[in-house]
């Protein structure tokens, strides 16, 4: 049983990176929450330049020796990136599309959570009051 659980855990939590082009991978996919970790673990080189296409030109968003970067706080839309290593030619471009959950869905979960919390508090308060004064003797 334990082995099965551990195998399931391994399979389900070790999410396979999504590949975009030959160089960049999406190591942590939070596109519906406005964040993403882009990684380039398999790219040869010591210094990397990651650029984003915005306003008709490429802008540097990271330059250095790390092999990943986490973007967050992204609004809905399409984003285009490219990576170059050790001053070489940029690798293939890829698009990242961010689409947040609809607010109606978000408030549905929020409302359900609020109701459940209220029910839990009432359950605990009423239940605890019933047993006040038990002084160690189950009633």
């Amino acid at each position: 049983m334990l082995f099965r659980i551990l195998m399931l855990m391994t399979v389900f939590t070790a999410s396979a990176p999504l590949a975009f082009g030959q160089t960049l991978t999406l190591a942590d996919d939070g596109r519906s929450a406005g964040y993403a970790t882009l990684a380039w673990a398999a790219v040869d080189g010591n210094s990397f330049l990651l650029e984003e296409y915005e306003g008709d030109e490429w802008h540097t968003i990271y330059e250095g020796g790390d092999r990943a970067t986490t973007l967050s706080g992204l609004v809905d839309g399409s984003y285009r990136f490219r990576l170059s290593a050790d001053g070489g030619a940029p690798g293939p471009e890829f698009d990242l599309t961010v689409a947040h959950h609809p607010l109606s869905r978000a408030f549905g979960f929020f409302g359900a959570g609020a109701v459940m919390l209220a029910v839990l508090i009432v359950l605990l308060v009423v239940g605890a009051r019933r047993h006040e004064g038990d002084e160690g003797e189950p009633s």
Partner: peptide, 15 residues
């Protein structure tokens, strides 16, 4: 979006 009080995923995450 990190300052957005109506960020859907965050609202879902709260409870």
């Amino acid at each position: 979006e990190l300052l957005n009080m109506l960020l859907p995923a965050s609202i879902m995450f709260l409870f």
